[in-house]
């Protein structure tokens, strides 16, 4: 274990942990936009900026990417941090003036209206969607393209991706709700990625429950689960399982 100080508190963390993880473990909250515990830290939004004092040298760094070190002193709310975080949020707010989460964070820092004016955007290029698509879903349907002020998240050639499953993980993980996955009858739509996929009908209730390509993808991943599971919607699956348990002789009850 590594000993360090966060906001004047003695904290212990395992080697390789980040400052953010160490702080959260003891209940010290550091605001973030681009961090998700299931994904690799990326340090894109800079909102988690903290002051790190090591051998009397003070520097600012992102808590989500900085590994804990023996004897360092971390300040999550010093004047230096506040000044930096305020500037970062003012710039984020200038980019996305209508995103609630950013407005709230900016208000916490005392900013109502940014001094700068930019195009009204919703995406802050945090890369959570890109990471979840690559690391968790494993298809890499979207990525960052171009660079500098042109940088954007999109699908290759800005047309419907041939590998997108329409799973909507990107929409779930998006901190600014810039990505929206919508269901219109038998179609799953993610307009930002030009995705439009046909959904499968549940064999029991007849509801459309998930995109065909997503189900086929999952089937390929684990064929042992049997055909039926991939034809049944989650709520019917639950009901069916419940009935099986209920009607099985109680002494020889088997949970499937």
């Amino acid at each position: 274990m590594i000993k360090l100080t966060i906001d004047n508190r003695e904290v212990e963390a395992r080697e390789g942990a980040t400052i953010l993880e160490a702080a959260r473990k003891v209940g010290i909250e550091i605001p973030t936009l681009c961090y998700h515990q299931a994904l690799t830290a990326y340090g894109a939004c800079r909102v988690c900026t903290v002051e790190i004092i090591r051998k009397e040298w003070s520097r600012l760094s992102t808590a989500c990417t900085y590994p804990v070190q023996k004897g360092i002193e971390v300040k999550t709310n010093s004047e230096k941090v506040k000044r930096a975080r305020k500037m970062i949020l003012e710039m984020l707010l200038a980019r996305c003036p209508n995103v609630k989460k950013i407005k709230d964070l900016a208000r916490d820092m005392g900013i109502e209206k940014p001094r700068f004016e930019l195009d009204n955007e919703e995406c802050i290029l945090c890369g959570l969607c890109v990471r979840v698509c690559e690391e968790i879903v494993g298809v890499s349907a979207i990525a960052f393209f171009n660079r500098g002020t042109e940088r954007e998240v999109n699908t290759p050639y800005e047309i419907n991706s041939d590998v997108c499953l329409g799973c909507g993980a990107c929409a779930v993980v998006c901190p600014t709700e810039a990505i929206k996955a919508e269901d219109i009858k038998e179609i799953r739509k993610i307009p930002l990625w030009h995705t439009e996929l046909k959904k499968r009908k549940c064999r029991l209730c007849g509801e459309f429950f998930a995109p065909e390509v997503e189900i086929d993808f999952l089937k390929k991943k684990d064929a042992r689960l049997g055909e039926e599971i991939f034809e049944t919607c989650p709520s019917c699956r639950k009901k069916e399982l419940g009935n099986k348990i209920l009607y099985t002789n109680s002494r020889r009850r088997k949970y499937v």
């Binding site: 690559e134 890499s140 960052f144 393209f145 171009n146 991706s161």
Partner: peptide
């Protein structure tokens, strides 16, 4: 490799 990796480099 995914097409996104190739185009990420090609557009950068």
């Amino acid at each position: 490799i995914p097409l996104t990796h190739i185009l990420g480099v090609a557009t950068f």
